[in-house]
């Protein structure tokens, strides 16, 4: 037992050492990312003045929020369908399509959606070129898959007694869904939305395939800057990212990890 605990600790060191090094060197006064030259918040100031990064961040947040919201609606419906309707025509195809974006390599998802948008444009004249809208549609699709799985597993562990009581008391199915089911699965919905949001915010590959000239997202800016070499501004950006995501995830998990009361 003690040996596996040692491996566990080493595993955590492996997972967190790079993140810690990013954060430490974001406060480094020197441009050389790996030589310590004293404490400084200079790179945060430069990051704030970097218009390309600020503009891309605004686009990324707009895309992520829209895609996550669309994914929340579609994914909740899909998760509900999978958990509650055990048999319907085409369920197997439905299952395959829901889980496909989760397991498909990103380059394939990105390429296939781009080819769809190009084909749609020549068939029905929409969308005209690529841009923010096409990235949102692409991200909403893989976000839907994640939300569906989370909602489905929440509904599988769900006590139906309250719903049945409400139905027995004469509530309409829609009302039962809105008043009983939705509030009870709310933590799963929050987790699902946040997951769809962060995955969209983080995606480079699918966005690159489906972006247009005026829709450069934050990961695309980071990627092109990183390709040119290590830059302390990216460390500062990473630190902000890590801190924000940690706060979000810890808050959300303290909501969802509470087991449903039985």
């Amino acid at each position: 037992m003690s040996a596996v605990r040692v491996v566990l600790v080493l595993g955590y060191v492996f997972l967190y050492a790079p993140i810690v090094s990013l954060i430490v060197f974001s406060f480094n006064a020197s441009r050389l990312v790996t030589v310590w030259a004293g404490f400084s918040t200079r790179w945060y100031g430069e990051l704030w003045d970097n218009d390309a990064i600020r503009g891309a961040a605004a686009i990324s947040i707009e895309v992520a929020a829209s895609a996550a919201t669309a994914a929340l609606v579609l994914g909740t419906a899909a998760g509900f369908a999978l958990a509650r309707y055990r048999r319907f025509r085409g369920r197997l195809l439905f299952l395959a399509m829901v889980t496909a974006p989760l397991v498909m390599p990103e380059v394939i998802t990105g390429l296939s959606l781009l080819l769809l948008f190009v084909a749609l444009e020549s068939w029905i004249g929409w969308p005209q070129g690529r841009g923010i809208a096409t990235i949102i549609l692409a991200h909403a699709t893989f976000g839907t898959a994640f939300v569906a799985i989370i909602v489905q597993s929440r509904l599988a562990a769900f006590d139906r007694a309250l719903e049945e009581a409400a139905l027995d008391l004469g509530a309409r199915p829609w009302k039962v869904f809105l008043v009983i089911t939705l509030p009870l699965i709310a933590p799963a919905l929050i987790t699902g939305w946040l997951l769809a949001f962060t995955l969209s915010l983080d995606d480079l590959v699918i966005a690159s395939f489906n972006a247009g000239p005026a829709s450069t997202t934050l990961p695309m800016v980071i990627f092109s800057s990183v390709r040119l070499g290590v830059s302390p501004q990216i460390n500062a950006l990473a630190t902000i990212f890590v801190v924000a995501v940690s706060i979000l995830v810890v808050t959300a998990s303290s909501l969802t990890l509470r087991r449903p009361q039985r």
Binding site: I19, D202, P219
Partner: peptide, 24 residues
């Protein structure tokens, strides 16, 4: 378990980038 999941939530691109500074 949360400690295992947390890095998965922080940017993949940035975590790969971190290794450049460590390994170069």
């Amino acid at each position: 378990l949360m400690l295992v999941i947390l890095p998965f939530w922080t940017s993949f691109l940035i975590r790969v980038y971190a290794w450049i500074g460590i390994l170069k």
